[in-house]
Structures are given as structure tokens and as C-alpha cells.
Amino acid sequence: MTIFGLWVINKAGGLVYERSFADGLPHLTSNEYLVLAGTLHGIHAITSRLSPTGSSSGAHVISGETFKMNILLTATGTKFVLLTSLVEPTADSVLQKVYEIYADAVMKNPFHTPEMPIRTEGFDTRIGALLG
């Protein structure tokens, strides 16, 4: 029941927000996170094409041995990725709440440029209150 981190990836595959919470996963440089987000964006598109039965969504959950990545793809193409421990049944609802906060604090902010890194203080504090 640990949340390690949160990423927000824009529709072009760029990482616009990254924040780490609990310890457990090592800290990477921001450049490494950018590369990983871009890779994930590509993989997500491919996974929807590999379906053995009809059309499929992209990957929802990607699991390693000690942690998993929960992915929420919104209708506009923005991806929210939550890195959690393997047993985290609330991950989906947390992602929904993050999406709500994003809609309120980021999309309604007139000073925010769409598809650009999120530098909104309100988003940071509300995410901190939800996950920190």
C-alpha cells in the first residue's frame, strides 16, 4: 500500500509532471524520466495493437516484481501514471482523483499553456494533500 510516484504524460509523449513520494524506488535524473515517459507512450500504443481478440485498450497495469505502474488514459490523450506497490487496490480511484485535480487546478488555470510542463502551485499542493 505505498505510492512511489506520479507522472503526467501529454498526448505527444512528453513528461509534463513528475513527482516522487515514498522511498523504495531510486531517484532518477529528470532526463531519464523523460526518456522513460516517451518509451511508455510508445509501448502503450503498441500494446493496443497486439490484442488476440478484437480491439483493445492500451496497457492498464504494468507489473514488475515489487512494484506496478497503473496507467489512466483520458479521452484527450493525457496519461496519468501512478507507481505503486504490487498490492494497491485503490490505484484506479486515486488516478481518477488526480485527473479531477488536474482538470480543476491545471486546465482551469489561465496561465497554464496546454501540453507544457505543469508549473501550477495549486496542483502541487493538492496532489501533495492527496498522495503525500
Binding site: 490484442s51 485498450s57 496497457a59 507489473s63 514488475g64 507507481l83
Partner: peptide
């Protein structure tokens, strides 16, 4: 790619185990 991503994120020799979409699990 996922194997490398998991390895990078975990910082140790952790294996990628599976992923799941709406219609299948690999």
C-alpha cells in the same frame, strides 16, 4: 522495452512480470 524500463525504475535487477489491457494480459 518494458524489461528495461522496470530495470531502470527499480534500480536493481528486477524482472518485468506482466502487463494487462482491457482484453488480454501478457
Amino acid at each position: 522495452s518494458l524489461r528495461n524500463m522496470i530495470r531502470k525504475l527499480s534500480g536493481k535487477d528486477e524482472q518485468f512480470v506482466n502487463y494487462q489491457t482491457s482484453t488480454y494480459k501478457l
